[in-house]
């Protein structure tokens, strides 16, 4: 086992200063060390997008990112969006449009959509679908997800 490294990472506004193994994936750091299990691991090879989080405002796959690479970064996970009693507008649109079924891909889908919406004011459906195409969903057929993100964009 390699020596542990010190990392200082802010997650959802909370500052952490911890020792981690250099090989620890960011996804496992969030899920196992911080108990933020909203970030899901779907493939561990960067295809499905379920583990997507924001790193300094950009969407990244936390299964392809080592914790030490995130040293000094600000991370936002799904737990940093709205709450059960106070969903944010994108989460609310997902609910209104039935954009989730099993909910496993949903956190990653929300983080990718958050990134997309923060950088693009007006996307065509084709651009929206292209923007979401790095996040796989096996339940919804995407129609309702596209509707929800479009509704959030138009709000």
């Amino acid at each position: 086992m390699a020596d542990k490294c010190r990392v200082r990472i802010t997650v959802n506004g909370v500052a952490y200063d911890q020792e981690v193994e250099p090989r620890l994936l960011l996804a496992d750091f969030l899920r196992e060390d911080l108990d933020l299990t909203g970030t899901h691991v779907g493939c561990e090879h960067g295809v499905c997008g379920a583990c997507t989080v924001l790193l300094n405002g950009d969407s990244v796959r936390s299964c392809l990112c080592l914790t030490v690479q995130a040293d000094g970064a600000e991370i936002t996970t799904v737990e940093g969006l709205g709450t059960v009693d106070n969903l944010n507008s994108l989460q609310q649109k997902f609910r209104e449009h039935h954009a989730l079924q099993c909910g496993f891909c949903t956190p990653g889908m929300l983080m990718t959509a958050t990134d997309l919406l923060s950088k693009n004011e007006n996307m065509s459906d084709e651009e929206l679908r292209e923007g979401l195409s790095g996040n796989l969903c096996r339940c919804t057929g995407y129609e309702h997800i596209v509707n929800a993100v479009r509704a959030a964009m138009n709000e």
Partner: peptide, 17 residues
């Protein structure tokens, strides 16, 4: 609207892992 959605949308679902 689905009753399961708020927990799943906020990362508070409880999947086995």
């Amino acid at each position: 609207q689905r009753l399961e959605d708020p927990r799943l949308l906020t990362g508070h679902g409880k999947f086995t892992d």
